[in-house]
Protein backbone atom coordinates (compact mmCIF):
# COMPACT_ATOMS: atom_id res chain seq x y z
CA UNK A 1 0.00 0.00 0.00
CA UNK A 2 2.83 2.38 0.87
CA UNK A 3 4.49 1.38 -2.39
CA UNK A 4 1.33 1.97 -4.35
CA UNK A 5 1.10 5.43 -2.84
CA UNK A 6 4.75 6.17 -3.64
CA UNK A 7 4.38 5.11 -7.29
CA UNK A 8 1.07 6.85 -7.85
CA UNK A 9 2.24 10.02 -6.18
CA UNK A 10 5.40 10.14 -8.32
CA UNK A 11 3.40 9.75 -11.52
CA UNK A 12 0.78 12.24 -10.39
CA UNK A 13 3.51 14.79 -9.65
CA UNK A 14 4.92 14.30 -13.12
CA UNK A 15 1.55 15.04 -14.73
CA UNK A 16 1.20 18.13 -12.58
CA UNK A 17 4.62 19.31 -13.71
CA UNK A 18 3.45 18.91 -17.30
CA UNK A 19 0.41 21.01 -16.54
CA UNK A 20 2.56 23.67 -14.93
CA UNK A 21 5.13 23.68 -17.72
CA UNK A 22 2.68 23.68 -20.60
CA UNK A 23 0.95 26.95 -19.80
CA UNK A 24 -0.07 27.49 -23.43
CA UNK A 25 -1.84 24.18 -23.70
CA UNK A 26 -3.68 25.01 -20.52
CA UNK A 27 -4.55 28.48 -21.80
CA UNK A 28 -5.84 27.08 -25.09
CA UNK A 29 -8.05 24.48 -23.49
CA UNK A 30 -9.59 27.29 -21.48
CA UNK A 31 -9.99 29.52 -24.49
CA UNK A 32 -12.77 27.48 -26.08
CA UNK A 33 -15.22 27.57 -23.16
CA UNK A 34 -14.43 31.24 -22.58
CA UNK A 35 -15.23 32.07 -26.18
CA UNK A 36 -18.46 30.12 -25.90
CA UNK A 37 -19.46 31.93 -22.76
CA UNK A 38 -18.69 35.38 -24.10
CA UNK A 39 -19.81 35.13 -27.71
CA UNK A 40 -22.45 32.45 -27.68
CA UNK A 41 -23.85 34.01 -24.53
CA UNK A 42 -23.94 37.40 -26.20
CA UNK A 43 -25.13 36.25 -29.62
CA UNK A 44 -28.09 34.24 -28.45
CA UNK A 45 -29.19 36.45 -25.59
CA UNK A 46 -31.92 38.10 -27.64
CA UNK A 47 -33.07 34.95 -29.38
CA UNK A 48 -33.05 32.80 -26.32
CA UNK A 49 -34.36 34.98 -23.52
CA UNK A 50 -37.99 34.04 -24.27
CA UNK A 51 -37.49 30.31 -24.44
CA UNK A 52 -35.12 29.96 -21.47
CA UNK A 53 -36.60 32.81 -19.49
CA UNK A 54 -34.01 35.37 -18.42
CA UNK A 55 -30.24 35.58 -18.72
CA UNK A 56 -28.90 33.21 -21.39
CA UNK A 57 -25.36 33.26 -19.95
CA UNK A 58 -26.62 31.87 -16.65
CA UNK A 59 -28.52 29.31 -18.63
CA UNK A 60 -25.48 28.48 -20.75
CA UNK A 61 -22.88 28.23 -17.99
CA UNK A 62 -23.81 24.67 -16.91
CA UNK A 63 -23.71 23.56 -20.54
CA UNK A 64 -20.24 25.02 -20.93
CA UNK A 65 -19.11 23.44 -17.68
CA UNK A 66 -20.34 20.06 -18.89
CA UNK A 67 -18.65 20.55 -22.25
CA UNK A 68 -15.40 21.47 -20.50
CA UNK A 69 -15.63 18.42 -18.27
CA UNK A 70 -16.41 16.12 -21.17
CA UNK A 71 -13.73 17.56 -23.45
CA UNK A 72 -11.07 17.50 -20.79
CA UNK A 73 -11.90 14.01 -19.63
CA UNK A 74 -12.20 12.43 -23.05
CA UNK A 75 -8.81 13.95 -23.96
CA UNK A 76 -7.31 12.77 -20.69
CA UNK A 77 -5.85 9.56 -22.09
CA UNK A 78 -3.99 11.23 -24.95
CA UNK A 79 -0.68 11.75 -23.13
CA UNK A 80 -0.68 8.06 -22.23
CA UNK A 81 -1.23 7.13 -25.86
CA UNK A 82 1.64 9.40 -26.91
CA UNK A 83 3.87 7.76 -24.33
CA UNK A 84 2.77 4.36 -25.56
CA UNK A 85 3.89 5.45 -29.02
CA UNK A 86 7.24 6.93 -27.99
CA UNK A 87 8.34 4.16 -25.64
CA UNK A 88 8.12 6.07 -22.37
CA UNK A 89 5.26 3.91 -21.16
CA UNK A 90 7.11 0.69 -21.87
CA UNK A 91 10.08 1.96 -19.91
CA UNK A 92 7.69 2.74 -17.06
CA UNK A 93 6.23 -0.75 -17.24
CA UNK A 94 9.64 -2.28 -16.75
CA UNK A 95 9.58 -0.82 -13.23
CA UNK A 96 8.09 -2.92 -10.43
CA UNK A 97 4.93 -0.83 -10.18
CA UNK A 98 1.30 -1.79 -9.94
CA UNK A 99 -0.25 -1.27 -13.37
CA UNK A 100 -3.18 0.36 -11.60
CA UNK A 101 -0.94 3.22 -10.50
CA UNK A 102 -0.54 4.31 -14.11
CA UNK A 103 -4.31 4.63 -14.49
CA UNK A 104 -5.00 6.07 -11.05
CA UNK A 105 -2.34 8.78 -11.35
CA UNK A 106 -3.50 9.85 -14.78
CA UNK A 107 -7.10 9.74 -13.63
CA UNK A 108 -6.36 12.01 -10.68
CA UNK A 109 -4.32 14.41 -12.79
CA UNK A 110 -7.10 14.75 -15.39
CA UNK A 111 -9.76 15.40 -12.79
CA UNK A 112 -7.68 17.86 -10.80
CA UNK A 113 -7.09 19.86 -13.96
CA UNK A 114 -10.79 19.64 -14.83
CA UNK A 115 -11.71 20.95 -11.38
CA UNK A 116 -9.33 23.88 -11.80
CA UNK A 117 -10.84 24.70 -15.18
CA UNK A 118 -14.38 24.48 -13.84
CA UNK A 119 -13.49 26.78 -10.99
CA UNK A 120 -12.04 29.28 -13.44
CA UNK A 121 -15.16 29.05 -15.61
CA UNK A 122 -17.33 29.75 -12.57
CA UNK A 123 -15.26 32.78 -11.60
CA UNK A 124 -15.53 34.03 -15.14
CA UNK A 125 -19.26 33.46 -15.10
CA UNK A 126 -19.50 35.56 -11.96
CA UNK A 127 -17.58 38.34 -13.69
CA UNK A 128 -20.15 38.25 -16.51
CA UNK A 129 -22.96 38.66 -14.09
CA UNK A 130 -24.03 35.06 -13.55
CA UNK A 131 -25.43 34.64 -10.05
CA UNK A 132 -25.57 31.24 -8.38
CA UNK A 133 -28.84 30.78 -6.55
CA UNK A 134 -27.43 28.25 -4.10
CA UNK A 135 -24.34 30.32 -3.18
CA UNK A 136 -21.06 28.87 -2.02
CA UNK A 137 -22.58 25.48 -1.24
CA UNK A 138 -23.82 25.48 -4.81
CA UNK A 139 -20.33 26.07 -6.17
CA UNK A 140 -19.14 23.07 -4.23
CA UNK A 141 -22.06 21.00 -5.53
CA UNK A 142 -21.29 22.10 -9.11
CA UNK A 143 -17.74 20.81 -8.73
CA UNK A 144 -18.97 17.50 -7.33
CA UNK A 145 -21.29 17.07 -10.30
CA UNK A 146 -18.42 17.87 -12.68
CA UNK A 147 -16.37 15.21 -10.98
CA UNK A 148 -19.16 12.63 -11.23
CA UNK A 149 -19.50 13.30 -14.95
CA UNK A 150 -15.71 13.41 -15.48
CA UNK A 151 -15.11 10.10 -13.74
CA UNK A 152 -16.83 7.84 -16.26
CA UNK A 153 -15.65 9.83 -19.28
CA UNK A 154 -12.03 9.71 -18.08
CA UNK A 155 -12.29 5.95 -17.75
CA UNK A 156 -13.49 5.74 -21.37
CA UNK A 157 -10.54 7.87 -22.43
CA UNK A 158 -8.02 5.71 -20.57
CA UNK A 159 -9.47 2.63 -22.25
CA UNK A 160 -9.17 4.30 -25.65
CA UNK A 161 -5.56 5.22 -24.88
CA UNK A 162 -4.69 1.54 -24.59
CA UNK A 163 -7.06 0.06 -27.14
CA UNK A 164 -6.61 2.42 -30.11
CA UNK A 165 -3.72 1.98 -32.50
CA UNK A 166 -2.48 5.54 -32.69
CA UNK A 167 -3.25 9.09 -31.69
CA UNK A 168 -4.81 9.89 -35.06
CA UNK A 169 -7.63 7.49 -34.29
CA UNK A 170 -7.95 9.02 -30.87
CA UNK A 171 -8.43 12.52 -32.25
CA UNK A 172 -10.98 11.18 -34.71
CA UNK A 173 -12.99 9.57 -31.92
CA UNK A 174 -12.85 12.77 -29.90
CA UNK A 175 -13.86 14.88 -32.86
CA UNK A 176 -16.95 12.84 -33.62
CA UNK A 177 -18.14 12.47 -30.03
CA UNK A 178 -17.65 15.72 -28.16
CA UNK A 179 -19.88 18.17 -29.98
CA UNK A 180 -22.68 15.77 -30.97
CA UNK A 181 -22.91 14.45 -27.42
CA UNK A 182 -23.05 17.99 -26.12
CA UNK A 183 -25.79 18.97 -28.54
CA UNK A 184 -27.64 15.75 -27.86
CA UNK A 185 -28.14 16.90 -24.30
CA UNK A 186 -29.75 19.83 -22.56
CA UNK A 187 -26.42 21.69 -22.54
CA UNK A 188 -27.40 24.61 -24.79
CA UNK A 189 -31.15 24.46 -25.29
CA UNK A 190 -34.12 23.21 -23.26
CA UNK A 191 -34.96 19.55 -23.93
CA UNK A 192 -38.53 20.50 -24.94
CA UNK A 193 -37.24 22.52 -27.87
CA UNK A 194 -35.41 19.51 -29.37
CA UNK A 195 -36.99 17.19 -31.97
CA UNK A 196 -38.28 13.93 -30.57
CA UNK A 197 -35.40 11.72 -31.71
CA UNK A 198 -32.82 14.09 -30.24
CA UNK A 199 -34.79 14.21 -27.02
CA UNK A 200 -34.70 10.44 -26.88
CA UNK A 201 -30.92 10.38 -27.20
CA UNK A 202 -30.57 13.22 -24.70
CA UNK A 203 -32.64 11.26 -22.20
CA UNK A 204 -29.98 8.53 -22.05
CA UNK A 205 -27.04 10.96 -22.17
CA UNK A 206 -25.51 11.33 -18.70
CA UNK A 207 -24.54 14.86 -19.66
CA UNK A 208 -28.21 15.87 -19.65
CA UNK A 209 -28.61 14.89 -16.01
CA UNK A 210 -25.44 16.68 -15.01
CA UNK A 211 -26.48 19.84 -16.87
CA UNK A 212 -30.03 19.83 -15.54
CA UNK A 213 -28.81 19.48 -11.97
CA UNK A 214 -26.19 22.20 -12.43
CA UNK A 215 -28.73 24.49 -14.01
CA UNK A 216 -31.16 24.11 -11.15
CA UNK A 217 -28.36 24.95 -8.70
CA UNK A 218 -27.53 28.13 -10.60
CA UNK A 219 -30.98 29.33 -11.63
CA UNK A 220 -33.44 28.17 -9.00
CA UNK A 221 -32.00 26.60 -5.85
CA UNK A 222 -31.65 23.24 -4.16
CA UNK A 223 -33.89 20.78 -5.99
CA UNK A 224 -33.54 17.53 -4.08
CA UNK A 225 -35.38 15.16 -6.50
CA UNK A 226 -33.40 16.46 -9.47
CA UNK A 227 -30.10 16.16 -7.61
CA UNK A 228 -30.98 12.65 -6.53
CA UNK A 229 -31.84 11.62 -10.08
CA UNK A 230 -28.54 13.10 -11.28
CA UNK A 231 -26.60 11.27 -8.58
CA UNK A 232 -28.23 7.94 -9.39
CA UNK A 233 -27.65 8.28 -13.15
CA UNK A 234 -24.06 9.51 -12.90
CA UNK A 235 -23.00 7.02 -10.25
CA UNK A 236 -24.52 4.21 -12.32
CA UNK A 237 -22.69 5.57 -15.37
CA UNK A 238 -19.39 5.77 -13.50
CA UNK A 239 -19.78 2.30 -12.04
CA UNK A 240 -20.61 0.84 -15.45
CA UNK A 241 -17.62 2.55 -17.09
CA UNK A 242 -15.33 1.48 -14.28
CA UNK A 243 -16.45 -2.13 -14.64
CA UNK A 244 -16.11 -2.07 -18.44
CA UNK A 245 -12.78 -0.28 -18.21
CA UNK A 246 -11.36 -2.88 -15.87
CA UNK A 247 -12.41 -5.61 -18.23
CA UNK A 248 -11.07 -3.81 -21.27
CA UNK A 249 -7.68 -3.11 -19.72
CA UNK A 250 -6.98 -6.17 -17.62
CA UNK A 251 -5.36 -7.93 -20.57
CA UNK A 252 -3.52 -4.87 -21.87
CA UNK A 253 -1.92 -4.07 -18.56
CA UNK A 254 -0.97 -7.53 -17.32
Amino acid sequence: MAEFFQETNAQFRRWMLHLKREPFTLAFTLLNPIILLIFMGGAFQGLASDSVGGDYRSYLLPGILALTVFGNSIAGGIPLLFERENGFLLRLMSAPISRGSILVSRFLAVNVSTMLQCLLMLVLGLLFGVRIATGVGGVFALLVISLLLGFGVTVISLVLAFRLENHGDFFAVMGITTLPLTFLSSAFVPLDSLPAWMRAVAAVNPMTYAVDAMRSLILTGWDAPRLLLMAIVLIAFDAAMFWLGRRALSRHLA
Partner: peptide
Protein backbone atom coordinates in the same frame (compact mmCIF):
# COMPACT_ATOMS: atom_id res chain seq x y z
CA UNK B 1 13.11 15.19 -11.44
CA UNK B 2 13.63 12.12 -13.62
CA UNK B 3 15.77 10.46 -11.00
CA UNK B 4 13.35 11.34 -8.24
CA UNK B 5 10.58 9.87 -10.39
CA UNK B 6 12.34 6.57 -11.00
CA UNK B 7 13.54 6.42 -7.39
CA UNK B 8 9.88 6.37 -6.39
CA UNK B 9 8.87 3.88 -9.07
CA UNK B 10 11.58 1.53 -7.80
CA UNK B 11 10.56 2.20 -4.19
Amino acid sequence: EHLRYYADLYH
